Simulated scan of single mutants.
Amino acid sequence: MQQYDLENGYLLIRAEKKLFAAYQTLYSNADTNLFYDWQMRLSDTLWSDNGFFLVHNNQKLGGAILHKNEVLFPFLIPPFCDRAMFYRQIQRALLMWRDPDSTELFVRNGLDADVEILLTLGYQRTARSRRGMIRPTDHYDVCLPAGFYEKPVSVEQSAAIANLLNQAYKGGINEQVFGPLTEADIQADIERLMATNTSDVSSLVYDAKTNLLVGACLAGVDPETVNCFAGIGQVGVLPQVQNRGLGIYMILKALSKAYYYSPAMCLFVTVGNPAESLYRHLGFIPGPCFTQMRFQLA
């Protein structure tokens, strides 16, 4: 059993993979991907041989995967609750083991409880916090608002959809965090939905007077989705036709169509995006927030 001395009696002990996976799954209490699946939660960490327990006086206090200059899947083990001490010791280990050419340390998918502590230790956010949201699929009797019509989603529409969504997201959090979407991004999304024959969950909405594409919702079942959960990947409406019920219509339609394929619908949202209030209004419940953090070495 490999162990490494840190300071003041703290040790890092390399963990057996299955034991580490069980501890991390239970004590992180953070199903950030909304798997709702024990085996998939375990598989989050089974890929790595670098799971470690932080130990003091023969008592496990917490653990994390330490991979080069990164901390992944951190957790504390009750009754230990000193998150600042935990991260100080983990950072000490990273400083000893990091690639000498690296000038940065990272905490991947840090939880909300960690952010303020990491900021006091000199870390900075590399992106806005995000969270998953989920709700059951169900039957809804929905009608497209007057003055609009629909067409099926197709790969040939990828450029037009990307242009629409970039206009819908312009100046908002999505644009700030992810930058503009490309035709290739949208084409890949549509092809994944077509691979499961669930592209009918999506919507393309056009203005009846101008024949202009004014709303899009890319939704369905991704081939790699756990538990066959459906998902909404993109949804947006042009600014000039917002507040006319198109967003609500497209999401309720997605929930109704997805009912025949999946028990639940997931999506991910950047914290602070006004769309989150709409998702909550439509019955989506939030999962835990997660954030990427970076420490710049002198």
Rank of each mutant, 00 (worst) to 15 (best):
T210P: 01
Y27I: 01
G287Y: 14
R192W: 08
S48F: 06
L213G: 06
V115K: 05
Y149V: 11
P180K: 12
R130H: 02
N109I: 05
E191A: 03
S129Y: 03
A160V: 00
K60G: 00
V271G: 00
I251E: 03
H281M: 06
L144E: 04
E7K: 15
Q176P: 00
F295G: 01
L121D: 01
P223R: 12
L164E: 09
L255H: 06
E7L: 14
N29C: 12
V226M: 10
P274G: 10
L11A: 12
D101C: 06
R135L: 00
N273M: 08
E191M: 09
Q296F: 13
L144C: 03
I232L: 14
D200N: 12
N174Y: 08
D82A: 03
R244P: 00
Y23D: 07
V201W: 05
N166G: 07
G122H: 11
N163R: 10
A113R: 10
T196Y: 03
A168K: 12
D200A: 04
M133D: 01
A208K: 13
G215P: 06
G236K: 11
G233L: 09
D222E: 09
A195V: 04
G110S: 15
D185M: 07
V205D: 02
L267Q: 04
N50M: 05
L119F: 10
G51E: 05
T25K: 11
R41E: 08
H139L: 01
D101Q: 13
G233V: 01
R244L: 05
R92T: 14
Q296Y: 14
L238P: 05
I232P: 04
R14P: 13
Q39T: 13
G283S: 07
L165H: 09
G245N: 12
A254C: 06
R92W: 13
I173A: 10
L94T: 08
C217D: 12
Y249M: 03
R244T: 00
A22I: 05
S154I: 08
E276A: 05
Y87D: 02
S203G: 01
M1F: 05
E7A: 13
E276K: 05
L26R: 10
A230V: 10
N50V: 00
D185R: 07
G132W: 04
G147C: 06
S129K: 06
I232S: 10
D44K: 14
G236C: 07
F178S: 11
D99H: 11
N227C: 05
L255T: 12
E224D: 09
L278A: 08
M85K: 11
E104S: 07
I77F: 08
P74M: 02
M265I: 15
D185G: 08
L267S: 04
T291M: 12
N50Y: 05
F86L: 15
R128S: 02
M250A: 09
V201H: 00
